[in-house]
Amino acid sequence: MPAPRNHFKAALKAGQPQIGLWLNMGEALMAEIAGHAGFDWLVIDGEHGPNDVRSILAQLQALSASPSEVVVRPPIGETWVIKQMLDIGARTLLVPMVDSAEQAKELVRAVRYPPHGVRGVGAAVARASNFNNIADYAHTAADEICLLVQVETMAAIRDLENIVAVDGVDGVFIGPADLSADMGYLGNADAPEVQEVIEKALGTIVRSGKAAGILTFSESLNRRYLDLGATFVAVGADVTEFAGALANLAGRYGRGKDGKAAGVSY
């Protein structure tokens, strides 16, 4: 029995747009709710969310019945971290802060077993192989693992042509927040100078044949990026959606963010 098919990876290869949501709460119940909302992919965020191996595992378990592909973002692209993420069942990884093709090549090696890589062979006791019930897991895992790398500095932009040429990288994701900060526009990813770099980068990725991805909280920008050929686009995050919905509900009853009724003196 081979490793289960990664339909998200297949969709990216086929050029089918995939709409996603960020999961930053670190809570399995919230992840389970999001898993039935209709998104194509969900990112369990280990870089900026309050997550560790066990909380990521709990969310993977909660999402096991979800039709959404679960993407795990580790806190850093270290081989030992990637090994843990893969063994607990992550099969699509979004690795932050990839600044060079050399880094990307090392990440490819990290997700593959020897002799093609350096992933530790521990599948017999891992959730990834359904605890050794997927007999051919070790031989077929690489076919279904989807590796996405994040380009979010000008150093990465300068090496982008080489990054997209790395065999084994399935997609390249642009991080607007960090990129804009690195360009001197902290908190202003909408700046024309930043958008020019982003649009050129998207063009480079799309022309390479690799999937291009991005996250913003602007619907107009998201639709613009889809029009430019971005394939996997995240359109929001659980934290911001939850906070916004609660603020809207409180506001309908005249309550402001300070917890006081609007127009009432205390």
Rank of each mutant, 00 (worst) to 15 (best):
Q84I: 06
G236L: 02
V98R: 00
K13S: 11
I44F: 09
T231L: 11
A181L: 09
V81K: 00
E78A: 13
G38A: 10
G263C: 09
V235D: 04
E78V: 02
A165S: 12
G46S: 08
E241N: 02
I44R: 08
K210P: 03
T231V: 15
N6H: 10
A138E: 13
D182L: 00
R127T: 04
D170I: 05
L21G: 07
D99R: 07
E241P: 00
N188A: 13
S55Y: 04
G77N: 05
H116Q: 14
L42V: 08
A230I: 08
E27P: 00
H36E: 10
Y113M: 07
S265K: 14
S66T: 07
A123K: 01
A261S: 06
A62I: 05
N51L: 12
S55V: 10
L21E: 13
G203W: 06
A245P: 06
G15Y: 07
L221M: 10
T79H: 11
Q103M: 15
A138Q: 05
R109W: 05
S218I: 02
P2C: 04
A90K: 06
A234S: 15
I56Y: 02
E106S: 08
G244E: 11
T153K: 00
V81L: 11
D238R: 13
G254M: 05
F39V: 09
P4T: 02
V239S: 08
R5G: 00
L93K: 01
A62V: 10
Q18N: 09
L23D: 07
G203R: 12
P115H: 08
Y113F: 15
K83Y: 05
K9L: 07
A124V: 11
E152H: 01
G26R: 01
L42N: 09
Y137D: 12
G120L: 09
Y113K: 09
D238A: 03
N248K: 14
D143P: 04
Q18F: 03
A126Y: 06
E47Q: 14
H48C: 12
A123N: 05
Q59Y: 06
R73Y: 01
E32W: 04
V121H: 14
V118D: 13
A234L: 10
V166F: 07
P75G: 14
T140H: 08
V164D: 01
L249K: 11
V197R: 01
V125P: 00
A28V: 02
I76A: 13
D136A: 14
G89W: 06
R224V: 12
L21N: 07
A126E: 09
F131N: 12
K257A: 14
V111W: 01
V149G: 00
A138F: 02
V151H: 00
G120I: 04
Y266S: 11
V81D: 02
S129L: 04
A191S: 14
A247C: 01
A58L: 10
L221A: 11
L215G: 03
W22S: 12
A128P: 03
R119Q: 02
D227T: 09
I157P: 00
T216W: 01
V95L: 05
G203F: 09
P74Q: 06
F232I: 02
E27V: 12
G251S: 13
P115Q: 05
V43M: 13
